[in-house]
Design a protein around this nucleic acid. Structure first.
Lengths: 145, 145
DNA sequence: GCAAAAAGGTTTGACATTCAAAATATCTTC
DNA sequence: GAAGATATTTTGAATGTCAAACCTTTTTGC
């Protein structure tokens, strides 16, 4: 059987399974009200300091209108703080609240645990080749854009 | 050490944006009206023969109600044919139209190009190692879900 | 046989996410 | 200080999703 076909099938399935797993990991007992989208927004805002709406929207590649709606919900749920800049009253600054930082770190830990678990399954040689392949994959998608 | 970072980056960025990236590749001049969701539905229906709604919905892991809406749109756009089974009048059979098959093959080519980009710089031995590694990971993630 | 239960799909109502374009408020420039 | 630029929110429309109610048709149990 052709390695091309095998890889195609495996990659498609793997991506789907990992996404499913990640979605499931985000909604834990403690963070039932956090959607995958919420987590992505929190990741873009980042755990340190503040960012304005335009910058976060650019990082997420969504319009600021879309981000406004996401942030509305995150503020209401208490994960994000929103305030107006004093220097430029047009600018809105967002940052993670204490609760938001905790949720963010919780998710980071999930990523780390998952990576550790995955690497334990593989030999050193397999790890090396996998890394090379994933780098190539990232390049491929970057080149498309 | 670096495998860790690569995996994390892939996990965070590539997997998150995979839908957007694929959609960008799907929407060409010829197939402007095909969304990423449309393509996933067409993949689940498959290029050969017919399947009933329940089976396709199960493969996509969505409700049949959701699939009905997706298929409505695909039928209207001319990518999918829908008919009632003669043996069991409850059953609705869906299949790709000529246009649907063409779009499907176009997307398969995108996948092929992706695989080629990844494999290009690996030796035959490395390709075997990669395949082995991905198989292990598929098993691993399957077991988690 | 026939009534009740099961099965396959569709419809409905609700919500989340998204964008483009209009609206609002605040700078900046000339 | 008026005109234009910038940052954000609001509005209106589309897509994608589910659960639950609702048809049709088939199967089951008596």
């Amino acid at each position: 059987m052709d390695i091309n076909n095998t890889l195609n099938e495996v990659l498609v399935k793997l991506f789907r399974d990992i996404n499913t797993l990640e979605e499931r990991a985000i909604r834990t007992e403690e963070y039932q009200d956090v959607t995958a989208n919420d987590m992505h927004v929190m990741e873009a805002i980042g755990p340190e300091g503040t960012k304005n709406m335009t910058r976060v929207a650019r990082e997420l590649e969504v319009t600021t209108g879309t981000l406004t709606i996401s942030v509305n919900s995150l503020v209401k749920k208490g994960y994000v703080d929103r305030s107006r800049s004093e220097e430029d009253r047009r600018v809105v600054l967002v940052s993670l609240s204490g609760k938001g930082k905790k949720a963010y770190l919780h998710h980071q830990k999930f990523h780390q645990d998952m990576i550790e678990a995955v690497l334990k399954e593989l030999t050193g040689e397999e790890q090396r080749v996998l890394e090379q392949a994933l780098r190539k994959l990232t390049c491929f998608f970057r080149a498309q854009s």
